[in-house]
Amino acid sequence: MSKFTGKSPWVVHFNCNSCNGCDIEFLACLTPLYDAERFGVLHVGNPKHADILVVTGSVNKKNMHVLKNVYDQIPAPKAVVAMGVCAATGGLFADCYNVVGGIDKVIPVDVHVPGCPPKPEAMLDGIVKAVEILKKKTKETETVTEELPVVIVKPKELPAETAAPATAKESEK
């Protein structure tokens, strides 16, 4: 089956804490001009269908659980590409009060693509590299991530049950 894993890598991209530069560049890279689909790459919208997670931007305290959740929801085998310097090390934002660092603080990373933003060719190259790594993985690979580096403070109470929508009124006339 690993043969086919390499032939149809479906990519989900996640904008973690980036300045949107890498983000725009990555989406532009998936447009017809560079024709990523010739490698079988499909850009899917949700982690449950994806094989490769492409993350742009650094991780901060507010979104690290989101990154972890998205990663956990990808079925194994899966690979992670850290797109751009921020995703690799925290980059420009490394010293911010709220930034935890590169995404490898939260999830295991397979490929780092340097650049601010990386060139489209480098991005495609990164994905092809990720495909190579993906082929070696099996579905028995550990999928759930470790504990988060910073504890999430959960709210004290839950919201009250929402009243039924306005459409659904009981009529007893």
Binding site: V153, K154, L158, P159, P165, A166, T167, A168
Partner: peptide, 20 residues
């Protein structure tokens, strides 16, 4: 249940179309 703005917990409401 999901975290909305400000770390509040909210939950999704599921409602069908009733042509209302």
């Amino acid at each position: 249940d999901f975290y909305s703005a400000g770390g509040k917990v909210e939950h999704a409401v599921f409602s069908s179309y009733y042509f209302q």
